[in-house]
């Protein structure tokens, strides 16, 4: 298997994604462009979760928090008339990193089920904060009239240009995480997941390394949030709803935990299945729920585990 399958897989994936806009334009089916852009934005969120969950073993059930913070950073700046993406996006990432630092500093001291419950609870707190922000639409959220502007470099209101921006950022995120998890830093993360007692016995306290990974993941997911706000041109507390956290987590598992292509595959399959089921019945969640349970019980390797070449980034 090894490197040849890997080259084939990644070349095919990149070519397919890059060719999608002209194909969609020829078929006059803009819906698929929209769907795929959404898939790739969620893939970035899943990539960031995979860093801490897949490689670090931190079962965070609160990752949607950073989607929300990234989204609100864009929305609130736009609300005050600041449209520059050069300002919005770094701020979205910085604010997400800061919140991740605060949440991580408290929660990473615990482990197991505590960590799951705490990350979920803090995200719920941010959700309620969003609901109570009447000024920014409260429960209903608010529309973002103008997409992020990049001083004429690229125009996000052009769906195709926006698509390519998302594609490039997603590939960059994958590459970033690939480098991180194979560096010395990444080895500490993986080792602490594999056998924490052994890591401590040879001199590593995993806390600071895990916290650093948690902050990096938060910042990356904040970027996904900024993209999502631009994608929907709308921001609501639902960005941070706990079911969102569950969906992102499921993308990581479905795609294949701790794999390079897993987050993208998981995001693609989950969102496509969701949109197919939703087109068929309004009660699609009654079908998705059992599907989810079955895939947890019977499909533990994940999609990347069965696709040659998709395991490594």
């Amino acid at each position: 298997m090894g490197s040849r399958a890997r080259v084939v897989f990644w070349s095919a994936a990149i070519v397919l994604l890059a060719l999608l806009p002209p194909v969609v334009a020829a078929l006059k089916e803009p819906f698929y462009l929209d769907l795929m852009r959404r898939v790739m934005i969620f893939a970035i969120a899943a990539i960031s979760l995979n860093l801490i969950l897949g490689y670090g073993g931190l079962v965070s059930f609160g990752h949607a928090a950073y989607l929300g913070i990234g989204g609100y950073a864009v929305g609130i700046l736009a609300f005050y008339g600041v449209y520059s993406g050069w300002l919005q996006w770094p701020l979205a990432m910085g604010a997400s990193a800061l919140v991740a630092l605060a949440i991580g500093a408290v929660s990473i001291r615990t482990s197991g089920i505590y960590f799951i419950m705490i990350t979920l609870a803090f995200t719920q707190m941010l959700y309620f904060l969003g609901v109570s922000l009447e000024m920014f639409g409260g429960d209903d959220g608010m529309r973002i009239k103008t997409r992020s502007q990049f001083s004429g470099l690229v125009d996000l209101s052009d769906p195709v240009a926006f698509y390519y921006v998302v594609l490039v950022l997603m590939l960059a995120s994958m590459y970033l995480v690939h480098r991180l998890v194979n560096s010395r830093f990444g080895m500490v993360l993986r080792a602490a997941k594999s056998n924490e007692a052994r890591s401590r016995a040879i001199g590593f306290s995993p806390y600071l390394y895990r916290l650093a990974a948690f902050v990096i993941a938060g910042a990356l997911c904040g970027l996904a949030g900024a993209l999502l706000a631009n994608h929907t041109a709308y921001i609501t507390p639902d960005f941070m709803h706990w079911t969102r956290s569950g969906e992102i987590m499921f993308m990581v598992i479905l795609g294949g935990i701790a794999t390079g292509a897993g987050p993208l595959l998981g995001a693609a399959v989950l969102l496509v299945v969701e949109s197919l089921l939703a087109g068929w019945t309004e009660h699609w969640q009654a079908i998705l729920g059992p599907l989810l349970i079955l895939s947890v019980i019977f499909f533990r390797r994940g999609l990347a585990g069965v696709l040659p070449g998709a395991r490594d980034g």
């Binding site: 009660h283 059992p290 019980i297």
Partner: peptide, 22 residues
């Protein structure tokens, strides 16, 4: 592990919420 339990019971939640809505 806890991760599998969390996901499977998350699936149960989706199912029950929708069942009740039906």
């Amino acid at each position: 592990d806890h991760l599998d339990q969390v996901l499977a019971t998350f699936g149960l939640i989706l199912f029950f919420n929708e069942l009740v809505a039906i």
